[in-house]
Design a protein around this nucleic acid. Structure first.
Lengths: 219, 219
DNA sequence: TACTCTCAGCGTACTTAGTACTCTATGGAG
DNA sequence: CTCCATAGAGTACTAAGTACGCTGAGAGTA
C-alpha cells in the first residue's frame, strides 16, 4: 500500500495523493486503507521513510572517504529530485526521527570519523554536506527547467533585461555548450569536500600544512 | 489580505491556512476573497513573494563581498526558519520566477562579479551559496529542537544506542556547552565562502598562489 | 439631482477529501 | 464444525475550495 501511494505521488504529485486515489489504485474502497494506517499523516510518514530507503549510505570501511561521501551526496540529490514531492513532505514531518535517519547518520558520521574527524567535527561536516545536497535538490526541483536544451519563455527573457548581471550570467551559461546544471552539483560538492578535508587537517595535531587561513576553533 | 494570510501561516501553520480562516481573520465572508485572488494557489504564490521580501539583498557596491554575501545568507536562513511553512511552499511553486527572485539573483550575481568572478563562476557560486542556506534551513526546521538547552526524549536516546558514531557525536556535542546549532551555520558558511574565494583566485590570471589542488576548469 | 457603472462583499450550494462507526465475509486454529 | 481475527465494505458527517449570481455603496456624468 505504501508502494501504491509512492507510485501515485511520483506519477501525479502530492495533490493527487488522496486516500481515495490510493484505494482506487489498489482496487479497494477508501475506508479499507484505515485497516493499515491510522491516518493519512502516518501514510505520509511512511512515504518519507520509503524515500530514504532509496538513498545509498557511505561505507565507513572503505578507505576513500571522499568517494563514499560523494556517492552518498549524489544519491541524496538524485533521490530527492526523483521524488520531488518528498522535499515538501520532509519539511512538515518534524516528529522524532525515524529508523532510517539513524542509519544514515550513523553511516555518514562513521565515515567521517574513520577519516580522522573528531566527533565534534564530524557533526559539523555532516550538517554542511547534507545542507548542500538538500539545498541543491530544492533549487533543482524549483527551477523551471534544468534540461541542457533549456526552454525559456519570452516574458522571462523580457523581464530579465533590466538586470544586467543576470543577463551576463545567463548569457555566459547559455554560451557554454557543455553547461549542465546537474554537473554543477559536483563542482559544489568538491568545494564542500575540500573544505571538510581542510577542517580535518587543521584539526589533526601532526601534519600542519601551510595555510593562508587562520585555523578556526573547531571545538 | 496577503498580510492576514501571512500572519495566519506564521501563527498556525500551512494546514490552518484556509480561505475560510483568512476570511474570518479579515472579518469577511470566504467568497469575498476571490475578488482579490483567482484561487488559493495564487494566494500561496503571493505568500512566497511576501516571504522573499523579508530577505536582505547584498550590496554589490560595498567592497567586502564576503561580508555582503554572508549577511544575505544569514538573512535567507533566518527568514526561512522564521516562516517554516515557506520551505514546503517553495517546493511546490515551480512556475516562472517572480520579480523578487530576479532582484535577489541580480544583487548576488552583481556582488560576485564585482568581487572578480566571471559570470560563469558567479553562477556556480550563487548556486552553492543558496544550496547551503536553503539546505541548512530545511535541516533546522526539520530538527526536533535546536535550542541550546535541547530536550531529548528517552526513546530517542534508547533508539540511538545501537549506533556508536551517533552516540559519540551526540555525546561530544552535548558535552560542548558552547554548542549552538545556529552557530554551526556560520562555520559552514565560512567553508563555502572560502571555497568561493579560492575559485575566484584560481580563475584570476594574475595572482596564482600555491595550491595543493589541481585548478579545476571553471568554464 | 438622478442615473448608471464599478467593484467589494454576500449567500447558496456543489464537489472533493478525510475519516468515524458499524457491519460482513473469509480463512485458519482448535 | 465452530469461532475468532482480520480485511474490506457501506454509510454518512465535516471541512474546505470555489462556481454563480445578487446587492449595495460610492464615483463620475448628464
Amino acid at each position: 500500500m505504501v508502494e501504491a501511494a509512492f507510485e501515485l505521488a511520483d506519477a501525479d504529485g502530492l495533490d493527487a495523493l488522496t486516500i481515495r486515489a490510493v484505494a482506487a489504485r489498489l482496487g479497494v474502497k477508501p475506508m479499507s486503507l484505515y485497516r493499515h494506517v491510522a491516518h493519512k499523516d502516518a501514510l505520509l510518514d511512511a512515504l518519507v521513510e520509503r524515500m530514504y530507503a532509496e538513498v545509498e549510505t557511505p561505507d565507513p570501511q572503505r578507505p576513500d572517504w571522499r568517494a563514499e561521501l560523494r556517492r552518498r551526496a549524489h544519491s541524496v540529490r538524485e533521490v530527492l529530485v526523483r521524488h520531488p514531492w518528498s522535499i515538501a513532505l520532509i519539511e512538515t514531518r518534524t516528529g522524532p526521527d525515524r529508523p532510517f535517519t539513524f542509519v544514515h547518520a550513523e553511516a555518514v558520521l562513521a565515515t567521517l570519523i574513520s577519516a580522522g574527524c573528531s566527533p565534534r567535527l564530524a557533526s559539523r561536516a555532516f550538517v554542511v554536506l547534507d545542507s548542500y545536497a538538500y539545498g541543491f535538490a530544492v533549487q533543482q526541483v524549483t527551477m523551471p527547467s534544468t534540461e541542457p536544451g533549456e526552454v525559456v519563455t519570452d516574458e522571462f527573457v523580457a523581464a530579465m533585461q533590466q538586470y544586467p548581471s543576470l543577463v551576463a550570467v545567463m548569457g555566459a551559461v547559455m554560451a557554454d555548450a557543455s553547461y549542465d546544471f546537474v554537473a554543477e552539483f559536483d563542482a559544489g560538492l568538491d568545494l564542500v569536500l575540500d573544505g571538510i578535508d581542510r577542517w580535518r587537517e587543521a584539526q589533526l595535531p601532526a601534519v600542519t600544512v601551510g595555510r593562508k587561513q587562520e585555523p578556526r576553533d573547531l571545538g
